[in-house]
Design a binder for these strands. Structure first.
Lengths: 238, 238
DNA sequence: CGGACGCTTGAGACTGATCAAGCATAGTGG
DNA sequence: CCACTATGCTTGATCAGTCTCAAGCGTCCG
């Protein structure tokens, strides 16, 4: 079981002539710190950072807020790759265009880093490339785990996994009940887990009834029985 | 839609102190050529190259045959990450241990490359690290596509996708009907696609009835209507 | 020739998606 | 300040589809 808002890469990019591709869940890798940026921008809720197909000439480091990466299919359906928080870097693309779209789920602050400058650093700094490779691999791990979770379906398992994945790193030693903030809509989560929003609701309701979770608001729940949730998540695939 | 036996990474490895992690579908990246190896070994059918949890002190370049990467879950179920052919490299791990098991689906010839030598090259050759990053990202792309395919289920879409993914690069300009070799068992494929073996069989039978494919043997089919298969695969997620 | 294994096919139970309709909350305008 | 509207969460009933349990075959091997 991994940690919070992992996942959510954007692969493909033509940095350094042909190099990098992930834009992972770089959880505070400090990669952004080494790169010159154009300063921090304020992004209002539900605004798009970039669309699938746009020319991928920059990557974004999230400073505050939550960003969602998604892909729209021909059928009109949507698939979301992941949700990202402060410290993550999105928009890492290997091709000329972004392969996915990115949208602010909450108001966000992001640092824009031009691809050319990233390119320069990549070509010069070997250890930097290594860190990037490492981060990409980490993303790959998360993606593979998610792949298994999603295919060996079972709504309960998926939702339990989602809750555990997004639980706050058990903040200050206050309540030992983990808190899960989920500012995204139910539809977003459903698209992330590959299920219908109704099924997601029913599953959450069942969790409440069974005393597994406690809902402060629809966008914030507390986990009352983490062990049991872990079992559910494991049964689904592990 | 990607090509043949892609996917199938093995992430995590402690090369170069902390670097690489993927062991992707490195389709003839030539990475193996730059590394000293202990020569080629013959692996009989159904023999295991390494088990999940084994100390990951080597990676393997496949010379001939097909290798399958899989993970066994607590519930006894199995999930296969992918099938790999000549040119692919398996066993790329970032952790001390292999996170997955690898087994020969057919008799294989593999080149064993010690992790320490890989480590040395990685630390010295910057462009090598870049190629690895590139390959890892490619693997990530494939994994993400697979994730969507598997979650937005629909047996027909999954199977159509599988067939197209594994079709031979339309060999010699002989028959323009693509050939798909699938030496692995139905159970293997089902574990790969996240469905029951019975459902896989039924779907294949239906494809035959509808004239989409032509079965020479259970392990070799020809695609009669690639366009339609593509549509099915796309409907499932694209 | 006999047996084992794996592919294939059949019938029934389960369950998640879909179609529809309540409810609550937040935001707007009078 | 309050009513109204809109949006999105929640719940309900129905239906289609896959998994499961079982049983036929065919092939390969001893």
């Amino acid at each position: 079981m991994e940690q919070a808002s992992q996942s959510g890469i954007i692969l493909k990019s033509k940095f350094a002539g042909s190099a990098a591709r992930a834009h992972p869940p770089l959880k505070n890798t400090g990669i952004g710190e080494q790169l010159p940026s154009a300063g921090v921008s304020e992004i209002p809720r539900r605004q798009t950072l970039f669309f699938e197909g746009d020319s991928a000439d920059a990557i974004f480091e999230i400073c505050t807020g939550t960003v969602e990466l998604y892909k729209t299919f021909l059928s009109g359906r949507r698939g979301v790759l992941g949700f990202f928080r402060a410290g993550a870097i999105v928009g890492f693309a290997m091709d000329a265009d972004y392969p996915y779209s990115a949208e602010a789920v909450t108001p966000c602050q992001v640092r824009r880093i031009s691809r050319s400058s990233l390119d320069r650093v990549l070509g010069r700094n070997a250890s930097f490339a290594k860190r990037l490779l490492e981060a990409t691999c980490r993303e790959l791990t998360v993606t593979q785990e998610k792949m298994f979770i999603l295919s060996r379906k079972s709504p309960a398992g998926k939702v339990a996994w989602f809750l555990l994945q997004h639980k706050r790193p058990s903040a200050s030693g206050a309540t030992h009940m983990a808190v899960v903030e989920m500012p995204m809509s139910r539809a977003d989560i459903a698209d992330y887990l590959g299920m219908a929003p109704e099924t997601l609701c029913r599953t959450l309701t069942k969790f409440k009834r069974d005393g597994l979770i406690l809902a402060d608001t629809p966008y914030r729940v507390r986990l009352r029985n983490i062990a049991r949730l872990g079992t559910l998540a494991a049964e689904a695939c592990n």
